[in-house]
Every structure is written in structure tokens, then in C-alpha cells.
């Protein structure tokens, strides 16, 4: 074995994989949440749909997204593998364990929480990412008045009212005073999906899992990287708790609820 494989096959090296991928996924969550804020904009989904186009066409984002998929797979696979190995380190279980006396339950439940998240990710991806890429999403046509800035949106259909399609994900052109934008209407897809109370329930439930997973996971990642310092520990703990365990999951949970309750 050369030093590289040796490093990543050691227990600390394997943890390093989990920590690095995990913290990378944390940064993704921030971007994902910021972008998805467009869902709350009352513009018939135009910002959201444009954002979706940007995210799926920008070459840099594309590269990053493949990194992201790899991270999810590595994180989940390594995490579960380590759980399996760690179970082997104690072949005979205790008759009585008082875990709450010495550690937070989240830290002892990362596998369960992570698995819930994995199931969620599969559902989430098949609902939107897969549909968007390979399934059928109708187009929407936005008309923006250049002088007034007024925007109106309507389904992109032919005279008979049948949905029309374009070759690309988006087309933009100007007719007279109006700028016309034709784009896949993922927004409508989102709105439609979130009419399903079961799905909304799953989403909200999964966000609790995210919150608890990150409550431990964020600071744990730093510890694994060796970044433990009395001067900065509080800041890490603060960000981990407020940003990653409270604000982000709350924002994400607000999205399905918003469509289910408000829209």
C-alpha cells in the first residue's frame, strides 16, 4: 500500500473522508437553501425556474454537482461502513447502557439520522432532479414588459391548449416592448408535489433528521479534522447549532409547508 491508501484505510483516514464530505455537503446546503429562497418570491416562479436553469447549465456548477453526488455516496457509504465496523468492535453488547449520562443522543444516532436523510434524498431526487432531467416537465412562458417591468406568466401551449416543448431548457427573445422567456416550469411541479400531505410530512420529518444530524455532525467534522481550539470551539458550536441545526432545516421545512398551507 502506498501512503495515500494507507492513510485513507486507517480509522482516522476513514473518518476524514466522512468529515470532509460531510462539511462539503454542509456548504452545499447553504447554497441550496439560498437558491431555493426563490420559491418564496411571488413572481409565478420565474426566479426559481431561472435559478434552476442556471444550476443545471452552468459548467462550474455542473462539476461541483458531480462532486456533490460523489460526496453523498462516499459520506453515506463510509458512514454506514464505519457503523458496521464499529459494531464489530463490541461483539457482546452491554446488558444496560446509560448513554445519556455521558453523551448527546444525536451523537449516538448518526447512522439512523443519516439513513433517514438518505431515503429522503432518494425521494427528493426522484421527485425533482430526475423529473427535471429525464421526466416530463411542462414549459412556462413569462412575458416581461421592458418599460414597466411587469411580469406575467402563462403555460407554454399551442392554440389547442396542448403543452408545447422547446429543444433547450430555456429560450429568451424580445418582441416589441416585451421580453419573452420560455422555461421548464419546475416551480409548478414543486407546487403540485407539495399538495401531497404525505410527501410534505416526509419532508418536514426529514428536516428534523437533518437538524439533529448536523447538530452533532458539523462540530464533529471539525473535531475529526483536528480543528479543536478553545478560542474557536464556541464559534463552531454556535454556527453548527444555529445555522445548520436550526435555521437551515427550518428554511427547508418551510418550503413544502409554504406550498401546502399558503399556496
Amino acid at each position: 500500500m502506498n501512503w495515500f491508501t494507507k492513510m485513507f484505510s486507517s480509522s482516522i483516514g476513514q473518518k476524514l473522508i466522512v468529515a470532509l464530505t460531510g462539511l462539503f455537503l454542509c456548504t452545499f446546503l447553504v447554497v441550496h437553501a439560498m437558491g431555493n429562497l426563490a420559491l418564496f418570491k411571488s413572481d409565478n416562479g420565474m426566479s426559481f425556474n431561472l435559478y434552476t436553469v442556471f444550476m443545471t447549465t452552468n459548467p462550474f456548477i455542473k462539476v461541483v454537482s458531480y462532486l456533490l453526488y460523489a460526496s453523498v455516496i462516499f459520506h453515506a457509504f463510509k458512514g454506514l461502513h464505519l457503523i458496521y465496523k464499529n459494531r464489530q468492535a463490541r461483539p457482546v453488547q452491554y446488558g444496560m447502557v446509560n448513554g445519556k449520562a455521558n453523551s448527546h443522543w444525536t451523537s449516538r444516532s448518526m447512522g439512523v439520522l443519516g439513513t433517514i436523510m438518505l431515503v429522503f434524498i432518494v425521494v427528493h431526487m426522484s421527485n425533482f432532479w430526475f423529473e427535471y432531467k429525464f421526466g416530463y416537465i411542462p414549459y412556462v412562458q413569462y412575458t416581461e414588459n421592458i418599460s414597466t417591468g411587469e411580469v406575467s406568466g402563462m403555460p407554454y401551449v399551442d392554440e389547442a391548449g396542448n403543452p408545447k416543448q422547446i429543444k433547450k431548457k430555456m429560450e429568451e427573445f424580445v418582441i416589441g416592448d416585451n421580453k419573452i422567456t420560455i422555461v421548464k416550469d419546475l416551480y409548478a411541479e414543486v407546487a403540485e408535489e407539495f399538495e401531497n400531505p404525505l410527501l410534505v410530512g416526509l419532508y418536514v420529518f426529514a428536516m428534523f433528521a437533518v437538524a439533529f444530524h448536523l447538530f452533532h455532525g458539523f462540530k464533529s467534522g471539525f473535531q475529526t479534522l483536528g480543528l479543536n481550539h478553545p478560542r474557536y470551539n464556541q464559534a463552531i458550536q454556535f454556527i453548527g447549532t444555529w445555522v445548520f441545526a436550526i435555521i437551515l432545516p427550518a428554511l427547508f421545512a418551510a418550503m413544502p409547508l409554504y406550498f401546502f398551507l399558503v399556496k
Binding site: S11, I12, K15, A89, R90, N102, H216, T224
Partner: peptide, 10 residues
């Protein structure tokens, strides 16, 4: 054959 650390702090 020890397990790996998951930073539970126990």
C-alpha cells in the same frame, strides 16, 4: 480491533 471515533464525547 478498536472501533473508530465518532466524537460522541462519552
Amino acid at each position: 480491533g478498536f472501533g473508530s471515533c465518532t466524537n460522541t464525547g462519552a
